[in-house]
């Protein structure tokens, strides 16, 4: 039986705090609560904080601190968290316009056949949900979204594409997501958004950040230029 939170090692200069082992908003909010705590505290010189679904990685300055010192410090912070509950009061929703199907969704026919849905049904289901952003990873600005409707579950491509267009919206397994930049990938592409999701010139470079919600808004091809 594993007890959470638990502390794992990631080499000689990083530790990982794992709060659970499932995709769950309460577990995820503990990850971010600890991150917020540590960002305010300068006791340990932290080089990187990497949050994910269930875990937070803390990379520290190995010249200044040994592992035990860091573990003891982080443990004291964890004790202060006392099982933070998921708080949805300040819900922030980022609306992402999407052109579904056609040249923008090269896998739409496969997905419709696999899911036995019509194009309108697929669009309605996919764009009706507010998807929670658990984390950003894989590539700059790429959101890991939770909460996709079971009717849209669909296997990934057997051979990943070398080149997925920037803004592509895809489905893979139980997940849906959007590619902020051109990249390789194995998701089934059902549409594309004209919105820029990641821009290094912005103070906060990623449009979508963790702990917000994403809602896809269907638009027609001729409205693309309005964005």
């Amino acid at each position: 039986m594993v007890h959470y939170p638990r502390i794992l090692l990631s080499g000689d200069s990083a530790i990982v705090i794992q709060f659970g082992d499932e995709i769950d908003k309460t577990i995820n909010s503990n990850v971010y609560a600890l991150k917020d705590f540590l960002e305010l505290d300068k006791t340990i010189k932290i080089l990187s904080l990497i949050p994910s679904y269930c875990s937070l990685l803390i990379e520290y300055d190995i010249l200044l601190h040994n592992q035990k010192e860091v573990i003891d410090f982080v443990q004291s912070k964890i004790n202060l968290l006392k099982n933070k509950k998921f708080d949805d009061k300040k819900k922030q929703i980022i609306k992402i316009p999407v052109v579904y199907g056609g040249v923008f969704g090269p896998d739409i026919d496969y997905v419709l056949e696999y899911t036995k849905l019509s194009l309108d049904q697929l669009i309605n289901i996919h764009s009706s949900i507010e998807y929670y952003v658990y984390m950003i990873g894989f590539s700059p600005g790429f959101p890991y979204l939770g909460g996709m409707d079971k009717r849209l579950y669909c296997p990934r491509l057997e051979t990943p594409r070398i080149n997925i267009q920037k803004g592509s919206v895809g489905i893979a397994g139980k997940q849906t997501g959007i590619y902020p930049s051109e990249s390789p990938g194995g998701w089934r592409i059902i549409g594309r958004s004209p919105i820029e999701l990641f821009n290094i010139n912005n103070e906060s470079p990623a449009l979508i950040s963790s702990r917000t919600y994403v809602k896809f808004i269907p638009i027609s091809e001729k409205n693309i230029s309005k964005f």
């Binding site: 080499g11 990083a14 990497i50 269930c54 990685l57 984390m135």
Partner: peptide, 9 residues
């Protein structure tokens, strides 16, 4: 479930 990695993982 995807979790953090660093140089050397």
């Amino acid at each position: 479930i995807s979790d953090p990695v660093v140089y050397g993982s």
